[in-house]
Simulated scan of single mutants.
Amino acid sequence: MDFQLTSEQQLLQDSVRRYVDKAYGFEARTALLHSGRNGSAANWQLFAENGWLMAALPEEYGGLGGTLEDSVIIAQELGRGLVLEPYLGCAVLAAQTLVAAGSPAQQAALLPQLADGSYRLALAYSEPASRGMPDIVALRAERSGDSFLLHGTKSLVLGAVDAQAFIVSARIDGTAGISLLLVDGDSAGLTRQALPLHDGSWVEELTFAGVRVSADALLGEAGQGLGALRAGLANGTLVLCAELIGAMEKTLEVTAEYLKVRKQFGVPISAFQALQHRMADMAAELELARSMLHAALASLANDAEPARLKTLSAAKMLIGRAAKVVCGQGIQLHGGIGMTEEYLVGHYYKRAVVAELLLGSSDTHEALCAAALQVELGV
Rank of each mutant, 00 (worst) to 15 (best):
G185S: 06
R212E: 14
A188Q: 14
L219R: 10
G159M: 11
A176P: 01
D184H: 12
W202I: 15
G200K: 10
V157R: 15
A217P: 05
L156F: 13
G220D: 07
D184V: 00
L206C: 11
G177N: 01
A215H: 09
L206P: 13
S187H: 09
P196Y: 01
R192E: 08
D186W: 00
V183E: 00
A215V: 00
V213W: 01
G200H: 07
G174S: 04
D184P: 10
S201Q: 13
L197V: 12
I178A: 04
R192F: 03
T153Y: 00
A170W: 01
V168Q: 05
D173G: 12
L158D: 04
L182F: 02
V203E: 09
E204I: 11
L158C: 08
S155A: 15
E204H: 12
R171T: 06
S187C: 12
A176T: 10
G189Q: 08
I167D: 02
I172A: 07
S155T: 15
A176E: 14
V183K: 05
I167S: 03
V211L: 12
S179A: 03
V203K: 09
G189N: 08
V213S: 03
D186T: 08
T191S: 13
W202G: 00
A165E: 12
K154W: 03
R192Q: 12
S179K: 04
T175R: 10
A170G: 01
P196N: 05
L219N: 07
V161F: 02
L206H: 11
D216C: 06
W202D: 00
E221A: 13
A163V: 11
D184M: 02
T175G: 00
H198V: 11
R192M: 09
S169T: 14
E204C: 14
L180W: 02
D186R: 14
D186G: 07
G185I: 08
I167R: 09
D186L: 05
V157D: 10
G200N: 08
S169P: 04
A194S: 14
E204P: 10
S201K: 12
P196S: 11
S187V: 00
V161K: 12
G177R: 04
I172F: 01
L206Q: 12
V157S: 12
G152N: 08
V168C: 07
I178W: 01
A165W: 04
A163C: 07
D216L: 08
T191Y: 02
V183A: 03
D186H: 11
S187N: 10
V203P: 08
A194M: 11
T191F: 02
T153W: 01
T153L: 13
A176N: 11
A215M: 08
I167H: 03
L158A: 15
G152D: 07
H198R: 12
L190H: 04
D199T: 09
V211H: 09
R171W: 00
T191D: 10
A215I: 00
T207C: 09
A163F: 02
G210T: 10
E221Y: 00
D184N: 13
E205H: 14
S179R: 05
W202N: 07
Q164G: 15
L219A: 04
D186Y: 01
G210K: 11
S169W: 02
S214V: 00
G200D: 06
K154V: 01
L182E: 00
V161N: 04
A160C: 10
T207P: 02
E221R: 14
T207D: 10
E205W: 07
R212V: 07
W202E: 10
L181Q: 05
S169V: 05
I178G: 05
